[in-house]
Design a protein around this nucleic acid. Structure first.
Length: 159
DNA sequence: GCCAACGTTGGC
DNA sequence: GCCAACGTTGGC
């Protein structure tokens, strides 16, 4: 069981969009960075925990929780000429890009990036490292526990 | 919209 | 295989 942080632009696909999708599940297509791809291809297993992160928006941060819901498979958008994710060098025989299905499990309060930066327990998060801009990054079990623990406690207080 | 940081491309 | 030029990401 591993943990990941996955960035999505809420203007494209927000946590609400995924929760509204059939089975609360969407294919995580469009990753076009080799490191991020390798995390999906070589690291992800169904059931892995996912921090659903909203990026490129007014207040970037963790907006919900999700889980990996499939093994990796070829990303169809690489074959679609009309897609902005089309890759002329990819073939059905030799796909270059993969995706996994992601199932949203909870919307949380927004945990802003700025707040995460103040938390000593999260100092080592890949997301918070200088110059880090990978759309998929690994999260340690301790970091996962810190963040989900905080968000669950806050949800309880809000009830 | 700016720009730092990083990734990719392609000539050599 | 180097590296300059260019493209992208994403917070601010």
């Amino acid at each position: 069981m591993r943990y990941w942080l996955m960035k999505s632009e809420p203007d494209e696909i927000s946590i609400d969009d995924v929760l509204a999708a059939p089975k609360q599940t969407i294919p995580w297509f469009g990753v076009r960075n080799y490191q991020a791809r390798n995390f999906m291809r070589d690291g992800m297993q169904p059931g892995d925990g996912v921090l659903f992160y909203h990026s490129s928006c007014a207040v970037p941060g963790v907006a919900g929780l999700a889980e990996v819901a499939s093994t990796p498979y070829p990303d169809d958008s690489q074959f679609e000429q009309d897609s902005k994710y089309f890759d002329a060098k990819a073939t059905r025989e030799q796909p270059r890009w993969v995706c996994v299905d992601v199932r949203a499990t909870a919307k949380t309060r927004l945990l802003p990036l700025s707040e995460m930066r103040t938390m000593p327990a999260l100092e080592e998060m890949v997301l918070l490292q200088k110059g880090s801009r990978l759309s998929i990054t690994p999260v340690t079990a301790a970091q996962w526990k810190t963040i989900t623990g905080l968000l669950k406690a806050d949800a309880k207080k809000a009830r």
